[in-house]
Design a protein around this nucleic acid. Structure first.
Length: 425
RNA sequence: GUGGCUGUAGUCAAGCGGUUAAGACACAGGAUUGUGGCUCCUGCAUGCGUGGGUUCAAAUCCCAUCAGCCACCCCA
């Protein structure tokens, strides 16, 4: 249909875009302070990157990718997330040869072919950060802290931070083995999905929402109990750092992130009031990913949040983030001569840094006044034949309902002074 | 991929087989000559998501399709 965008996409219109600008400002500011530089990567990549980088058994890759064959017969996919792209770029440009760690952030659209519901779209936007090149648990703590700090800055409340450690490639198989020993005897009672998970990725069973499966997996060996010494102390340090700065968290040994590449620290932030999709961000460490994509063995950790969900949560919590459109000055002109003068005046005002507007609809004076009022114009200037003849202009202070005449030549000076006075009080 | 609900102007909607498709808000114009916010008046869907079908007659019934909302799976 010609007059409807594709399913799961959204136009961000005037009135709405201001919210995005606000969030983007907060994001850029916090990233500057934390020492993250922006990275921009293409919105599409070779499909293979996501197969390797996200994992070919994940839902995201298995059933949600926008994949197509381009005219050069290459398989291309729109990015379902950006970590894989960042890692690819890191390897491609040999950024590991520079002083480490590499700290980058990104902000942009992602694409997943999933059915639409509250807080889920086919094109959605993520802000994310990645730190590449350091194993140090202080980095894990920094990333988590930064995420929480961001939520606080925009005024969000009621977040829950869940953290877990899923171990490294040494201790993961140990956990897997213990888990299989625990679950295999119960196989017949698991839901059919979990039965297939048993072979592919038994850890996911812990994450199953089926009551029956939850019941069955109660008492299952937790990842935290199977961690090797190194991973255990890493996780302990991450928690210690978080404790030190007073960040509250839940150690949730059922938290298993959906993407295959996570190792050690995994975390997720939820907020209850945006419908069934309560996750407003998540991330974790991925110490094997860079190697997987063809780089040198390099650790990494990242985090991403969904802007649509952030906005939904903010709206639900009644938070303010957008100022309404207002004019410093509106020029109401009557007659062609006055309009020509108004056109010049508005240019002068704008050059002086004022938000200035004039009538663009050929409206009556009354209607122009009404329009100026609608947009909370600070001053409305009235210019007609009488004023032109006298070389003056009427300046009306809209809030006070008072007006005076000012010589035309002095009007810019008058307005800039008024503006300065207002902003200093 | 699966299931439920919905689809009438910019927005919220009434209408539930039969003359010109309520109402409210918004928007636009006006209430004596050049002045906003309140009030009052006027205007604003040849059209009821789209395409078929049933019928003398459909926004109203049926089918398909598209979209929205919600939920499952999964995730942001």
């Amino acid at each position: 249909m010609l007059t409807a965008g594709p399913k799961g996409t959204n136009d961000i219109l005037p009135g709405e875009i201001e919210k995005w600008h606000y969030l983007e400002e907060v994001i850029r500011e916090i990233c500057r302070q934390y020492g993250y530089s922006e990275i921009r990567t293409p919105v599409f990549e070779h499909t293979e990157l996501f197969l390797r980088g996200v994992g070919d058994t994940t839902d995201v890759v298995e059933k949600e990718m926008y994949t197509f064959i381009d005219k050069g017969k290459r398989s291309i996919s729109l990015r379902p997330e950006q970590t894989a792209s960042v890692v690819r770029s890191y390897v491609e440009h040999k950024i590991y040869a520079q002083p480490q760690p590499t700290k980058v952030y990104y902000l942009g659209p992602m694409f997943r072919y999933a059915n639409v519901q509250a807080g889920r779209y086919r094109q959605f936007h993520q802000f994310g950060v990645e730190v590449l090149g350091s194993y140090d648990p202080v980095v894990d703590a920094e990333v988590i802290t930064m995420a929480m700090e961001f939520y606080h800055r925009i005024g969000l409340h009621g977040m829950e931070l869940h953290i877990n450690s899923v171990g490294c490639k040494e201790c993961r198989p140990v956990h897997r083995q213990r888990l299989l020993e625990f679950l295999n005897p119960k196989e017949k009672k698991l839901c059919h999905l979990c039965r297939s998970r048993l072979a592919k990725n038994p850890m996911r069973i812990l994450d199953c929402k089926e009551e029956q499966c939850q019941e069955l997996s109660r008492g299952a060996p937790a990842t935290a109990d199977c961690l090797c010494e190194k991973c255990a102390s890493h996780f302990a340090m991450v928690r210690k750092y978080l404790d030190d700065v007073g960040i509250q968290y839940n150690v949730n040994d059922r938290l298993v992130r959906g993407l295959d590449y996570y190792t050690n620290t995994a975390f997720e932030i939820m907020v209850s009031d945006i419908g069934a999709q309560s996750s407003i961000g998540g991330g974790g460490r991925y110490d094997g990913l860079i190697e997987e994509v063809g780089g040198p063995p390099t650790p990494g950790i990242g985090y991403a949040l969904g802007l649509e969900r952030i906005i939904a949560a903010m709206e639900r919590q009644g938070l303010e983030f957008a100022k309404d459109r207002t004019f410093d000055v509106f020029v109401a002109a009557l007659g062609e001569k006055a309009r020509e003068q108004a056109f010049k005046l508005v240019l002068d005002f704008r050059r002086a840094g004022l938000v200035a507007e004039m009538d663009l609809m050929g409206r009556s004076l009354k209607a122009q006044m009404k329009f100026a009022d609608r947009f909370n114009s600070g001053f409305t200037l009235i210019l007609g034949d009488e004023e032109l003849a006298k070389g003056v202009i009427v300046v009306r202070n809209m809030a006070a309902g008072e007006q005076t005449e000012i010589p035309l030549g002095g009007i810019l000076d008058y307005l800039t002074k008024q503006k300065r006075r207002n902003s200093s009080t």
